[in-house]
């Protein structure tokens, strides 16, 4: 009645495990390679226009400090203008302890820039220029913080996107360069000014990754 069945104990692995692991490794590598190949994009580096310069590479340290101050102040000035429809004067900005207008130790180190505010309303365009020149003898350029607000677009129910950035920062290597008469991009460009571009975190990621 007792049926005997013989079992031959198979050794563990017996070479198959190594093969399975190797196969799995090849499969993972092949899948990754395929996915990388399929998802590959030519990382197009956002290039600069001929009239633009890059803040972090084309300005010296002190100019960069001034630019950084302007870049932050621009947000504040723009916000206050939106709320109260006035352009802060240089005196007010100094009173608000806003760099690069306030005359603190950083201001002294960064070329002791003298600032001047000019308003040039033109039709529906509300234009403000904050021009800064370094102390005489300093080898630093001139800056203009330019605000261009087109109030015509705010009227009625028209919902159009602004065609121009609310503010721009322009640079000229000459320390005493005055603002151009025509406050348009073309006016600045033909007078030898360069628009300073600072990449935001998101822009920088886009620029690097494409």
């Amino acid at each position: 009645m007792n049926k005997t069945s013989r079992q031959l104990v198979s050794p563990s692995g017996k070479g198959r495990e190594t093969m399975y692991v190797l196969f799995a490794a090849i499969l993972v590598a092949a899948t990754c390679a395929t996915l990388i190949f399929l998802n590959q994009k030519q990382s197009a580096v956002a290039g600069l226009e001929s009239f633009q310069i890059r803040a972090f590479s084309d300005l010296n340290d002190k100019e960069l400090a001034v630019f950084n101050g302007l870049y932050t102040a621009a947000v504040e000035i723009n916000g206050i203008h939106d709320d109260e429809e006035e352009w802060l004067t240089v005196k007010q900005l100094e009173g608000e302890l806003m760099p690069p207008f306030t005359k603190d130790s950083s201001w002294k180190k960064s070329g002791k820039y003298t600032w001047d505010r000019v308003l040039r309303p033109a039709g529906s365009m509300d234009i403000a220029l904050y021009t800064g020149h370094p102390e005489k003898g300093k080898k630093m350029g001139s800056f203009i913080l330019l605000f261009l607000h087109d109030h015509a677009k705010k009227q009625g129910n028209a919902r159009t996107e602004p065609t121009h950035a609310p503010y721009e920062i322009w640079y000229h290597p000459a320390p005493g360069k005055t603002a151009p008469q025509v406050a348009t991009d073309q006016g600045f460009i033909s007078a030898g000014w360069k628009e300073v571009i600072a990449y935001s975190g998101e822009d920088e990621v886009k620029r690097v990754k494409g």
Binding site: N2, K3, T4, S5, R6, Q7, L8, V9, S10, P11, S12, G13, K14
Partner: peptide, 15 residues
């Protein structure tokens, strides 16, 4: 069967 042995290990089962 947990080791990669060589040679034969035979088990004769009775049910």
């Amino acid at each position: 069967g947990q080791m990669p042995h060589s040679g034969n290990i035979k088990i004769d089962w009775h049910g």
